[in-house]
Design a protein around this nucleic acid. Structure first.
Lengths: 342, 342
DNA sequence: AATATATGCTTAAACGTTTAACCTAGGTAT
DNA sequence: ATACCTAGGTTAAACGTTTAAGCATATATT
């Protein structure tokens, strides 16, 4: 109630109808550009347009949504909107959705499947027309439910192998595979991989790509994967790296599996006064411009984030329109060479 | 229509009412925990609860919003959600709003007042209950309109001097003032300031703080402010800095007015092989962890972004509840000392 | 015995749209 | 004259809630 009092009541179809002296139906037709189809008289059309402008009429989307059963809103669930990777992605999705006259509601799951499920619930209650989701570990059930209920969903950045949902992801296997190959070309042999401990495919694929490449380059015995916990990555990174550096298998190259890991890792490297690339070559994942500030600018695997964002919206729009073919896309990375590999 | 077909129709109050054999009113009361107040019989209460759970009933927030006239949604307009500063801010606001059972819809204005106005319109059409806005240059009119209409608004990061709206911002004057003072303490004399060309108070205050500090330290004749255009900052930064470095007033210290400017600036500095802090001391605004990667980790002015986010939500909630006292808050910065000032 | 009070439930309007169905008057074709 | 269209409108239901108002019945008060 307070809103109505405060905001002096917004003008509705009824107000226009009253002022023009017609029914709300006619006004609705005109507002929605159906005047031909619904055969509204030309003078009336003109009058309605005038009055609508005069009263500064804006349709109430809530009412429209209730009636139409669709809200022109999509829910976007990312791991953390404060993470620049997801921030960029969100921005692209926001713009692309706007082009389709859709609004985006963003939620951060913190890679936590309980939070993720709660977000999905909340967004469903708000009747979003579809979802773009960066799925967390263990959220198979809630995504599966969405798919079952035929709620339009597109997974992005990662997918769930046992859920038959649409997705658009990077070819992660190839990405790390080529990173290792690049290291090898630069003469590295003891290449270690710092990843998150996660059953999610994107991480598993990155690990698999690393392993396979190591094998294919006859470096199988030098394989060394550090899997850190998401929540404790920062705390353990220092120890993790120390361990790596004091072990009997001291690596000459380090591959980081994500943006955040690169940041933490570079800190550790800096603190340990390790020289890049002389003592150790480094490649990161999802690099961004700031990594150029590292004294030896970081060579990194670039994801086609723009394409990922745009396509995810495109696919979702298709699904919302009723196209039920599941779409599953793998995009290719680009290796951006700087100076951290010599 | 397609939604209803696809999603197999969500269960409504009516469905529960029918199954239990009561009116929807009773169900509504029970769902909303008004069974005491509205004197619903204990067995009926139990039955309704059971059936609700059994049918997995979730209230339709759209319908509720239409009826109640409030959506439990707030609109957040930032310059660019892909910018980490705003990403962090958005994240804090998201979490804080969730604690109050509010959902946030984020829009990016690109510092463009037309876009900003369009976003405000779109969010109003969606009947948001209030706004948190990072105002762009020239958007006074649209904000003023909101205030006039008594739509709850809180400006954040910046405010508009001729609009009497709630705001929570940094004491920008003091921030740059103390940065200059810090430079002076480190022995710098020819301190230059790289800012955006903008009439917005936050920028003007930063410039004023710089100027005043320079005056107060008897360095008035060394005052040098470079004001760059938002859209061309990256392009011009290089030239701008070159100019600075070849001019007859070559500075021995550089103060950047924002995060983005620091990034561009550090690039230029790196490209020009300028030694920090020997050749030039540097202080940034809104520094974040990645600046530690610069070969000489950046000393920066830290904004209490957490407090800014939380308080903005708190103030907005007050306003939505009907408290019409305008609240205007200035927060204090912290100077984080690293190595870029010697 | 009459009246008040409490209890437990129903009715129906309202929020602002959309839209199928219906109505009316004039004009055309037969 | 009859039937039939067409143009231009109205009516009212529906979307899913919330909530004021009303209606019984039973119990308590005088």
């Amino acid at each position: 109630m307070p809103n109505l009092v405060r905001m002096g009541k917004r003008v509705s179809l009824k107000d226009i109808a009253a002022k023009v002296g017609v029914s709300t139906a006619l006004v609705s037709y005109v507002i929605n550009g159906l005047e031909k189809e619904k055969r509204v008289g030309p003078e009336i059309v003109k009058k309605i347009r005038e009055v609508a402008r005069e009263l500064n009429y804006k349709p109430n989307q809530i009412a429209r949504s209730l009636r139409k059963g669709s809200t022109n809103t999509i829910g976007l669930i990312v791991a953390d909107i404060a993470n620049p990777f997801f921030g960029q992605l969100a921005r692209i999705i926001e713009d692309e959705a706007a082009r389709h006259h859709y609004t985006v509601i963003i939620g951060s799951s913190d890679e936590n499947c309980v939070k993720s499920a709660a977000l999905i619930e909340a967004l469903l209650d708000r009747q979003v027309d579809g979802f773009i989701i960066v799925p967390s570990e263990g959220c198979n059930a809630s995504i599966e439910t969405l798919v079952q209920r035929e709620v339009p969903v597109v997974l992005v950045d990662r997918f769930l192998p046992d859920v038959n949902a649409n997705y658009i992801v990077l070819d992660n296997f190839k990405a790390t595979y080529e990173a290792v190959t690049h290291f090898v070309a630069k003469g590295c042999e003891r290449i270690a991989f710092v990843a998150y401990q996660s059953s999610l495919v994107h991480m598993q694929e990155r690990i698999r790509g690393y392993r396979q490449a190591m094998k294919d380059h006859q470096l199988e015995e030098a394989i060394q994967v550090k899997e850190l916990l998401y929540n404790h990555a920062k705390d353990f990174m220092d120890n993790g790296v120390s361990e790596l550096l004091t072990g009997n298998q001291k690596p000459d190259a380090l591959l980081f599996a994500t943006n955040a890991l690169s940041i933490s890792g570079l800190y550790a490297i800096k603190n340990h006064n390790i020289k890049v690339p002389e003592d150790m070559a480094v490649i990161g994942f999802d690099g961004n411009e700031v990594f150029d500030f590292f004294y030896s600018p970081l060579t990194y695997i670039e994801q086609p984030i723009d394409q990922m964002g745009k396509e995810s919206v495109r696919i979702l729009m298709e699904q919302i329109k009723g196209n039920h073919q599941t779409v599953q896309i793998e995009l290719q990375h680009r290796l951006i060479q700087r100076q951290s590999c010599g």
